[in-house]
């Protein structure tokens, strides 16, 4: 077994353990919310999912910018891998939010500013993946996708600020707020569940990203070997 495969295996194992502990804390240890009751437990998935998606789009932003600047394939591979995972975690965020919204707001979906902007974020990066598959020339596809990857990232500050700028049904942040530190605002057991769950999501994310990045690398290798053989 190569060193890289061993590292991936260790990361995968750590992710599995952290996710399992996170699930235990979220479902069995953390107390129910005083107002929302048990349904609030969905937040231990919802918040880590969207933060992981934001991290993923940040990597798309960095990878895309570096690719346009240096033209190195590895930056494009990173942006592509991160975009795919970003779409997955954004879709999960919207589904979790919708399941939480039904018992809390009485609707599965509403055209609230934050929800709409998050749906737009999903469409932008789903478009990013489609764009790559629609353009035959690999370098042109990478450049076009990089521009979209950078522009799409501008939606994230809009999503974060939307609850302050517009009158929305979505509540303002409980954790990432400028006026209070998290432990003043959230019960310690709830904050612990959220932290463990977030660490689990992060480890799982980096494990999946390492696999997806390697798939991209191997695809490049296959193309190069086929060209060599054809030449």
């Amino acid at each position: 077994m190569t060193q890289s495969k061993k590292r991936k295996g260790i990361l995968g194992g750590l992710a599995l353990v952290a996710v399992a502990i996170g699930l235990y804390w979220s479902l069995a240890v953390a107390p129910p919310d005083a107002y929302q009751g048990e349904v609030q437990r969905i937040m231990y998935l919802h918040l880590p999912s969207i933060l992981t998606a934001y991290l993923s789009y940040f990597l798309v932003f960095i990878g895309s910018g570096m690719y346009l600047w240096k033209r190195e394939k590895r930056d494009d591979l990173l942006a592509h891998a991160a975009a795919e995972l970003g779409v997955l975690f954004t879709a999960l965020t919207i589904i979790e939010g919708s399941i939480w919204g039904k018992p809390t707001w009485g609707v599965w979906w509403t055209w609230d500013a934050r929800l709409t902007l998050t749906a737009i974020l999903l469409l932008i990066y789903a478009g990013y993946l489609m764009l790559r598959s629609l353009i035959d020339d690999e370098n042109r596809a990478a450049s076009a996708a990089a521009i979209l990857g950078i522009i799409g990232f501008l939606d994230i500050p809009l999503i974060h600020m939307s609850v302050y700028w517009w009158r929305t049904l979505h509540q303002p942040p409980s954790i990432l707020r400028p006026d209070k530190v998290p432990w003043e605002n959230v019960h310690p057991a709830m904050l612990t569940a959220l932290t463990i769950s977030f660490v689990g999501f992060l480890l799982l994310y980096f494990y999946l990203l390492s696999l997806r990045y390697r798939v991209g690398e191997m695809r490049q290798e296959i193309k190069a070997l086929r060209l060599e053989r054809g030449a």
Partner: peptide, 25 residues
């Protein structure tokens, strides 16, 4: 559906989707 029903649905979908994506990857 009760509160735990919604919680189970959310956790089930998230865990199921992540496992399917991991297998696909």
């Amino acid at each position: 559906m009760g509160a735990w029903g919604f919680v189970s649905l959310a956790y089930g979908i998230v865990c199921g989707t992540l496992v399917v994506y991991w297998m696909f990857l």
